[in-house]
Design a protein around this nucleic acid. Structure first.
Length: 639
RNA sequence: GCCGCCGUAGCUCAGGGGUAGAGCACUCCCUUGGUAAGGGAGAGGUCCGGAGUUCAAAUCUCCGCGGCGGCACCA
């Protein structure tokens, strides 16, 4: 039998042998480091018996690959389950996969785990690693396996086996006294896991991800190749905490939220300045892209929502109020209102595509558990627009939109954007023929843009399929910001029409689209992206003029006035404090430019400029310094 | 909405059945200082809300509300 190694060398053996034996045959160092095999690019147990001529790569714990991390994390989950079964035998185990940065395992148990329990479990995991238990795969008969797990009181495991397709083997991995249903692969023994893991948090999770099912207890952990990587990961988490938009929002006096208006933002002057800067920026972009801005009512009779289909599907999530014996709803979306504008008068095909934009203030009664800072709120403003167009225009409008979106994201440094394609959900409006058409044209359109995207099955809006443009926050959570949705349904339900070239009435298609998504969410993302250190054009306070002595007060006022004339947003700091104190304070407040004026500057007409993050300052002529700042502060796309 | 943890001064947090604590911030006074905290004094609290246990509750119990982490949801 010939075994070929990745370097091309061939080893000849008389009979079958395990990967472990192969590694030992090559060398003791390799045998020690070996943790798995890779055959045809696929990870296999190190103990897999090789019995035909094949090419085999021996994977070691030094390999820096996602495969290795996944293997380690999956084993960590198993070791955790073993520890839990030893400490709390009445607990049932369910599933425990590897995830990004770590792993989790879901347990079923009446008593909740406490943080102290976590410590004990982690301690026991280290012991299990030190025990160096051999991990061995067996294949069991399906009925026998079900009987075994039921006998152990493990009803979840038995249920999982029932859902494994009949043609797939039932793999059971055994380590010590612990046996778990698993596809594998796994490490050859618990010792190979090492000690670079840590249990992180406790959380609830529904069995099979369905809120109708019972809630299990999920324990999250992180696991790495070695201590150094673990430490680096923990350090990254700490860093991320410092960027949290909720923390920075408070520190930088941007906004606050309070009990009397849960899920709604109180914008303070600083935050509102940032908000307006963004709004003006994108308004200008939309004007250039031939959008027409409108404004529609926030409170609209339920009849319109019944007609649009929202009342049917989202009634529970809409705020309503009674007046004049009628029921009104705070608008959760702008689209039905935009159709009302479209429906005024008669539209010709010559008017299409018609791009109707609105900074629409919307309210949705979001589940309390969904709220998160200003990223997920109940009152928000969409940079919304609806493009009324013909079917033929869907592709070109999609391409134009994607171009605009990427151009805008680039101005904020977002160059890597995840794109998801979400198709028809289970409950939806419109028949299958319409959905076929909508999905087909969106697919064609996104292919035309050349963007790479992933499929998100069943996640579309009730009226149409959508593209989602996803950005990531400081600690790696994904947030949908931009979106483009193809809608054949609402124009039908709300009876939108235009006169075609043939003189007959036709239904337009609606493209729902947003770039920031919600102003609130996008600002949250920006705060975390920049860690509060905004580029000059976005910074609410762009500069502070600080004096060294009160002899410079008058000059400082002149400096600020000149800056204001150039459109720069500045503040004055004439306080009776030392310059060290002022420098420290404004640096901590993340003010991008500190202009220091002392007696010297006021006499010479100069200014000492200290930029945020710099260790040193630069004395320049006042006019030159201000001109430079004004140029840097220009809004992207404004020149 | 569900599970777990948490709620003390403007902020960050300590304390814990018997008079409410610190640092920073704030106010006033001294200091006019050259690039990340000059010195002194002072003011500041429904210990999230309600009920219960107790001679006595910020502290223990229960019920709310809110926050945080997940899950579910996200037109």
């Amino acid at each position: 039998m010939n075994i070929t190694l990745p370097d091309g060398s061939v080893r000849v053996f008389d009979g079958p042998l395990s990967g472990e034996a192969l590694a030992a045959d090559i060398g003791p160092g390799l045998a020690k480091a070996a943790i798995a095999l890779r055959i045809d690019g696929e990870m296999k147990d190190l103990k897999t018996v090789l019995d035909t001529d094949t090419t085999v790569e021996i994977v070691t714990n030094r390999e820096e690959s996602d495969d290795v991390l996944e293997l380690i994390r999956h084993d960590a989950a198993h070791v955790m389950a073993e520890a839990v079964k030893e400490l709390y035998p009445e607990t049932q185990v369910t599933i425990g996969p590897a995830i990004e940065n770590g792993f989790y395992y879901d347990f079923a148990r009446d008593k909740p785990f406490t943080p102290e329990d976590l410590e004990k479990i982690e301690q026991r995991m280290h012991e299990i690693v030190d025990r160096d238990e051999s991990i061995d795969r067996e294949e069991w008969d399906r009925d026998e396996a079900v009987k075994f797990f039921e006998g152990q009181g493990e009803k979840y495991k038995a249920e999982i086996i029932g859902s494994i397709p009949a043609d797939q083997p039932i793999g059971i991995y055994r380590q010590g006294e612990f046996q778990d249903l698993c596809r594998g692969p796994h490490l050859p023994s618990t010792k190979k896991l090492g000690h670079a893991f840590k249990l992180m948090k406790l959380a609830g999770a529904y069995w099979r991800g369905d809120s109708k099912n019972e809630m299990l207890q999920r324990v999250y952990g992180t696991a790495w190749r070695n201590e150094k990587e673990l430490k680096a990961h923990l350090h990254r988490l700490e860093e991320a905490e410092r960027r949290d938009h909720r923390k920075l929002g408070k520190e930088m006096d941007l906004f606050h939220m309070q009990e009397e208006a849960v899920g709604m933002v109180f914008w303070h002057e600083q935050g509102w300045t940032l908000y307006r800067t963004l709004e003006n920026y994108i308004r200008h972009k939309l004007e250039l892209a031939d959008y027409k801005e409108v404004k529609t009512p926030q409170l609209v009779d339920r009849k319109l929502w019944e007609d649009s289909g929202h009342w049917d599907k989202f009634r529970e999530n809409m705020y309503t109020t009674e007046s004049e014996e009628r029921t009104f709803a705070l608008k959760p979306m702008n689209c039905p209102c935009h159709v009302q504008i479209f429906n005024q008068g008669i539209t010709s095909y010559r008017d299409l595509p018609l791009r109707m934009a609105e900074f629409g203030s919307c309210h949705r009664y979001e589940p309390s558990g969904a709220l998160h800072g200003i990223m997920r709120v109940r009152g928000f403003t969409q940079d919304d627009a609806h493009i009324f167009c013909t079917e033929d225009q869907i592709t070109s409008e999609t391409e134009t939109f994607c171009e605009l979106l990427l151009d805008i994201y680039k101005d904020f440094g977002f160059t890597e954007v995840k794109v998801k394609f979400s198709d028809r959900p289970e409950t939806r409006a419109g028949d299958d023929a319409i959905w076929d058409k909508a999905e087909g044209s969106l697919k064609e359109a996104v292919e035309a843009t050349g963007l790479s995207y992933t499929l998100n099955p069943g996640e579309g809006a009730f009226y149409g399929p959508k593209l989602e443009f996803v950005l990531t926050d400081a600690i790696g959570r994904d947030w949908q910001c931009g979106t483009l949705q193809v809608d054949f349904v609402l124009p039908e339900r709300l009876k939108a029409s235009y006169i075609g070239e043939d003189g007959a009435k036709h239904r337009p298609v609606m493209l729902h689209r947003a770039i920031f998504g919600s102003m609130e969410r996008f600002i949250g993302i920006l705060i975390e992206e920049y860690a509060g250190r905004f580029p000059l054009w976005l910074a609410p306070t762009q500069l502070v003029v600080a004096t060294i002595t009160d002899e410079a007060d008058e000059y400082a006022r002149e400096v600020l006035a000149k800056a204001a004339k150039l459109g720069l947003r500045g503040k004055l700091d004439l306080r009776n404090e030392k310059i060290n104190y002022k420098v420290r304070e404004h640096s901590l407040a993340k003010v991008p430019a500190l202009l220091v004026a002392g007696r010297r500057e006021s006499e010479e007409g100069t200014i000492s400029v200290r930029r945020l993050g710099d260790k040193h300052q630069k004395v320049m002529s006042l006019d030159e310094a201000l001109a430079q700042l004004a140029e840097e502060a220009a809004v992207p796309g404004s020149r």
